[in-house]
Design a protein around this nucleic acid. Structure first.
Length: 298
DNA sequence: AGTAACAATGAGTCCCAGCA
DNA sequence: TGCTGGGACTCATTGTTACT
């Protein structure tokens, strides 16, 4: 039986970026060349490409502005697979979207109550294409990492938290995903001279799993399968995670860690809606007011 | 109570691949 | 070859907390 690619990816990253005690291992990263350049994505894809078992591999997005960031697959097996098998078999193909977070001066994860997904909403299933440009739906996992500079070595960094998370933890609604990712309309012919337009560009904010205090400073795989440990003895269940959908209805996911990263006296607890969400209202805040330094008469 | 410092949130900017 | 769209980055304002 083929192994689960999310487990292979998780264990590979766990062992490359952390030592046997689970402490971060410092690694070098080249300079960022422009806004869309991402040395870390490149570094991660090179590790996976080089070290994943030989019947599986990793492909990096061939350029910027392409989503997802990475695809991990067994291409020989994918070639003979049905769309349905590619859609839900985690041993054949998965997408990986990398989300990098900073740490504030006080040591908290940045944007813990929700981070920018810009124009691509998170989803447990995403759309990619075959070489004939035929659409293909595959499962997507999100790699959330906190990258910090190594203060002792210039040009070196370390990861101080890592979660590889089923996209369904963030959103399961593929139709919603397609409605945003697919073709949209923009408003044109705006203004007095009709030469303005409105991009009507979505700027989506969804949950940040590293915002859950139970996830920060740990190395965790959040997976839909309750019984992964039966197949992978070096993984142990650390938490059960629930996300409420409506009154009494919820999805359940399972948080795993590398066996040795869990203390022997650890008690598995259930985390119910652990991601912080601020109070939100629909109206936006006005910005950029030009205020004069004098007051007009009443 | 007043103020300074910081964090959260909303929104603007930059850049360039891919396409027309 | 110029334009467009989108991912990542950056910044401004407001809210919150800590300090005097």
């Amino acid at each position: 039986m083929l192994t689960d690619l999310t487990v292979e990816t998780f264990l590979m990253l766990r062992n490359k970026f952390f030592d046997e005690k689970g402490n971060p291992v410092s690694f070098p990263l080249r300079d960022k060349r422009n806004t869309q350049d991402d040395p870390l994505d490149e570094y991660i894809s090179e590790i996976l490409k080089r070290d994943l078992p030989n019947n599986s591999s990793c492909i990096k997005a061939p350029g910027p502005l392409i989503t997802p960031d990475l695809v991990v697959l067994r291409s020989e097996i994918c070639k003979g697979s049905t769309p349905q098998q590619l859609r839900d078999d985690l041993s054949r193909i998965i997408a990986v979207e990398v989300k990098k977070l900073e740490r504030s001066k006080r040591g908290m994860i940045a944007r813990e109550s929700g981070l920018d997904y810009n124009t691509t909403p998170p989803c447990g299933t995403v759309r990619i294409y075959d070489s004939a440009n035929r659409p293909l739906s595959i499962r997507c996992f999100y790699l959330f990492i906190c990258q910090e500079p190594d203060m002792n070595r210039k040009g070196y960094f370390k990861l101080t938290a890592l979660v590889l998370c089923d996209g369904n933890v963030l959103n399961q609604d593929f139709d919603f995903y397609l409605s945003i990712v697919g073709e949209r309309t923009k408003q044109i012919g705006l203004g007095t001279y009709k030469d303005g337009f409105n991009r009507q560009r979505p700027m989506l904010v969804f949950a940040n799993p590293l915002g859950a205090k139970e996830m920060d400073r740990h190395i965790t795989l959040i997976h839909p399968d309750k019984s992964l440990r039966e197949r992978y003895k070096n993984l142990s269940l650390s938490n059960i995670m629930r996300r409420s959908i409506s009154e009494g209805i919820f999805n359940e996911f399972y948080c795993y860690r590398f066996d040795k990263d869990i203390p022997t006296d650890w008690k598995v607890s259930t985390l119910v809606d652990p991601f912080p969400v601020p109070e939100r209202e629909t109206k936006t805040q006005p910005r950029g007011k030009f205020r004069l330094d004098f007051r007009l008469p009443e």
